[in-house]
Amino acid sequence: MNPEDVRSEPKLVFKTASLNPNSKTIVKKRAWKSLKQIISTEKALPWPDNVVHYSSINAPPSFKPAEKFSDLSGLPAPYTDPQTRLRFANKEEYATLIALPMDITAGYLALRGASSIVG
């Protein structure tokens, strides 16, 4: 006997029979709203003033200037390579940095969220 059958059999019992997914009548695919969609629908409604929402307790943006750390080592980085836009802490790091292939430099930038041209 297939072990799968053993496992799935008790499943059939406790669920409401008509909603059992194994009955092939309901195969309608449903698109679930993402959290973003849920929040935006929620925001659009005319809530009373005192209501606190999921979206209203977001952390505030940082008021402190972001410190600059080397992308490679994580050390405080006073320098930025103008070519790759990567930050580095000392000349040894720069030596490794210029030898890095493009996908790695792009990966570092993307990780820091600095890959967009605008930002």
Binding site: A59, P60, S62, A66, G113
Partner: peptide, 18 residues
């Protein structure tokens, strides 16, 4: 320091302070 991952949010201590 969520900005290390490109997030604009304040860090945990800063949020607590807020």
């Amino acid at each position: 320091k969520p900005y290390m991952l490109g997030s604009a949010e304040a860090g945990l201590s800063e949020v607590i302070g807020y």
